[in-house]
Design a protein around this nucleic acid. Structure first.
Length: 192
DNA sequence: CATGGGATTGACT
DNA sequence: GTCAATCCCATGC
């Protein structure tokens, strides 16, 4: 992405990341689902202020924020907005493009739709771990790159965020309209 | 120092 | 639909 891409309001970045590519080593996918988080609302980890955990969130934009969820999964975010503001875009689903066999080996499943259709699934498929927290998204090893031509005019659907209890009413979830690779259909309120 | 709660997933009823 | 697994870390005594 261009320098400065992430130094903007997190809602704009979350929308603009739909259709962009995520690459790690030999695996790559197109982002089809994101969510925005900002320190002004209680669902965001940064809501509690600057702590060891949220240090990356309050740091410079364009870095990866990777944290452990439910003691099991690593979740990938792109840090946004200027230093001092705790904001990030959660990457929730990818359409697999390259390295599918490597993804299958790490995920232990065959179906393409099962490889990256969830925030914990895609980090497992791409081999993204906690030690990637704080890494630069321009220089890698985890790299975000602009939309391929075919995704230039992707249509965006907006929905409420998934799996949170606080500020659950905010429409801060962005999806590639009609994608078969979402973690969950648009408009499917709760349900597990 | 002890405790409680997740930005989830997959197995089972 | 229901539920356990599992661990980092914020919070409170």
């Amino acid at each position: 992405m261009k320098p400065g891409f992430y130094d903007r309001p997190v809602l704009e970045v979350a929308r603009d990341l739909i259709g962009c590519m995520v690459t790690h080593q030999d695996c790559a996918g197109v982002i089809v689902e994101t969510e925005a988080y900002h320190d002004s609302e209680p669902a965001c980890h940064a809501f509690v202020g600057l702590t060891p955990r949220t240090e990356t969130l309050f740091g410079p934009p364009g870095r990866a924020y990777v944290y452990r969820s439910y003691g099991i999964h690593a979740l990938l975010n792109a840090v946004c907005e200027p230093p001092g503001v705790g904001a990030a875009v959660l990457i929730r689903a990818l359409e697999p493009i390259e390295g599918l066999d490597h993804m299958r080996a790490r995920r232990g499943v065959e179906a393409v739709r099962q490889l990256c259709s969830g925030p914990g699934k895609l980090t497992q498929a791409l081999g993204i771990e906690l030690h990637h927290n704080g890494s630069d998204l321009l220089s890698g090893p985890v790299v975000f790159s602009p939309r391929p031509r075919a995704w230039r005019d992707v249509e965006i659907s907006i929905d409420t965020r998934i799996g949170i209890t606080r500020a659950a009413e905010l429409p801060w979830r962005f999806c590639a309209a009609g994608s078969r690779f979402l973690s969950r259909p648009v408009g499917a309120a709760s349900a597990v």
